[in-house]
Design a protein around this nucleic acid. Structure first.
Lengths: 159, 159
DNA sequence: GTGAGTGCAAAGAGTTTGCAGTGGG
DNA sequence: CCCACTGCAAACTCTTTGCACTCAC
């Protein structure tokens, strides 16, 4: 992946942002950045932790790095319907995507349309500043529909 | 409010749904339902708890009732950017709204356009079933912009 | 060398669960 | 009268924080 010129550009960009902010280029940060750049889709923090290598970076550090990256506009954090979050790299090279998330297996699919952007001016007109939005679709994916027993479909969801 | 025919209809509907599901009509459930029907906007659970009267219903019960209501399609739960959730009654009499939520004071404003509904067929085409979506805007409201010191605006957000 | 950054452990917030007691049907 | 429902307290999950140590600059 690091051979990809686009990957490299995003990487350099992020490093520059850190430098500009007077922040240090540390191993955990670089490891995380590389993992983030390798993702095609937004990622749960546990997955990131797994990929960075749990021995290379503490979970607490991961949260701190991600918070830092978010402040610098390097990553976007997106809160899901189950209270957890996904993180994804922000890059002018990557489109602003929304996602379809399976309620059962948490698989994420990209969805390259953003109908919501057009509404932000309307929100601005209401007097709001620093506007962002969340648009995510939730459903049950084909695989999970098959694996789901007819019984569970009827039950009120319980463990 | 209970004089409002629409209120009454929604109320009866919900009670019927409970009956149909073989669930009991209990005081906490009815108290919660009434409070929910009185809300004009989605509500944090602490607010609901306050309005029901903390002495009339335990927080745990409130969560359980809300989960039940959600299963029955009586309420919708919407997770916010800060990890908490808002609950709102689902009613054919009320439009499907989206909201603008102030990042600072958590004020919620209604926004009576839904651009996302049109995309659900696309998601269905991807093989998903039981589709729902979340579309919320976040920003800083006028009041909070005024009250914010120029200093905090520059700072990386910290307590 | 020095302070920003880290790992570890402990705290915190919001939410869920186990269990014994209660009350709706 | 019985079991679904509740209240209470404890557990759980995800995330943040405090503190002493470390390593980037």
């Amino acid at each position: 992946m690091p051979d990809d010129p686009q990957w490299k550009e995003d990487y350099e960009d992020a490093v520059q942002k850190l430098r500009d902010a007077g922040l240090r280029i540390t191993n955990p940060r670089m490891a995380l950045l590389k993992v983030l750049l390798d993702q095609k889709l937004p990622c749960r923090i546990e997955d990131l932790h797994q990929q960075v290598g749990p021995q290379h970076c503490d979970l607490a550090t991961l949260y701190r790095c991600l918070a830092t990256f978010q402040e610098l506009g390097i990553v976007r954090r997106c809160f899901l319907n189950d209270g957890t979050s996904l993180f994804e790299i922000v890059s002018p090279n990557r489109e602003h995507n929304h996602h379809v998330i399976c309620k059962v297996c948490h698989k994420v699919e990209s969805f390259d349309v953003c109908v919501a952007e057009g509404l932000e001016p309307l929100v601005r007109k209401l007097g709001y500043r620093d506007i962002s939005h969340v648009l995510e679709f939730f459903g049950i994916c084909e695989d999970c529909q098959e694996n789901e027993s007819p019984a569970t479909a009827k039950n009120l969801s319980k463990k």
